[in-house]
Design a binder for these strands. Sequence first.
DNA 1: AGTGCTTTTTAGAACGATTCCAGTTGCAGT
DNA 2: ACTGCAACTGGAATCGTTCTAAAAAGCACT
Lengths: 140, 140
Amino acid sequence: MSWIADGRTDEEILKAHGLRPTRQRLDLVRVIRKGGRRHLTPESFHRELAESGLKFSLATIYNSLNSFTDAGLLRRIGFGDRTWFCTNPAPHHHFFDEGSGRIEDIPGDQPQVVGLPEPPDGMTVLGVEVIVRVKREGVG
Amino acid sequence: MSWIADGRTDEEILKAHGLRPTRQRLDLVRVIRKGGRRHLTPESFHRELAESGLKFSLATIYNSLNSFTDAGLLRRIGFGDRTWFCTNPAPHHHFFDEGSGRIEDIPGDQPQVVGLPEPPDGMTVLGVEVIVRVKREGVG
DNA sequence: AGTGCTTTTTAGAACGATTCCAGTTGCAGT
DNA sequence: ACTGCAACTGGAATCGTTCTAAAAAGCACT
């Protein structure tokens, strides 16, 4: 059960991840949780907040999404020409739609990578991403 | 044997891929081939050319790398915050260094992905990327 | 509640990568 | 050579993201 849907309060979540529960962050956490599992760009999130009457500086959105990611609440995926923030921090892989530039979770059982190489000398492996590039049929 | 190292002339390569062998493109192909397998950014390639006394508009570099990619001579990899062009068009996967933002080929036997999911409805799979995120030991 | 210190928020400027634009050049087919 | 279309060019424009400096808000300690 991820933090998105567990029983803790927004404030408890923030504190548990070492983040000060400011007024803005409480609003952000509430809206993220309300929307469930999905992928945000700073821009799309900013628009969503504005539509709920919540006025934020775009810089705050960037700051906050980055802090939340560093704190382990979100996952940052940089594939294509913008940065996506995934509200599901559990390990999982993605589809990438070349047409729209959007990403989407691979649902259910995750693909596995076999035959992983040793990293180059002096490097540590942080993680492995599988990206399945897709496009809408009959386009391109 | 990829086009980088086969016996064809630069002009033959371009024509075989439906590209007009202009003076500029011939220079670009020559320099790419001379450098062997590696990863270019438009910026790094532009610099490399300038150091060889070859003056290009940056826009031409972007145009050309994109055309070469569409023609199948290069592979475009958009992971991190800039676009990399891989001079090895054969299927293979990459290391991504979080510290420097650079990518590098996974050498030798390639990792395999098992348990690939069906794409979402109405989508076709174009390819699968495996990206092994690494960082220099003792950093971060 | 008041004080002082630190972190966060903010608007706008700055930045870097990439594409667009409009004019020029140059290749290819008559 | 002439003509038409594709490619090249420098500079402006665009877009996503980060930086900056100042104001606001949280926090610890009285």
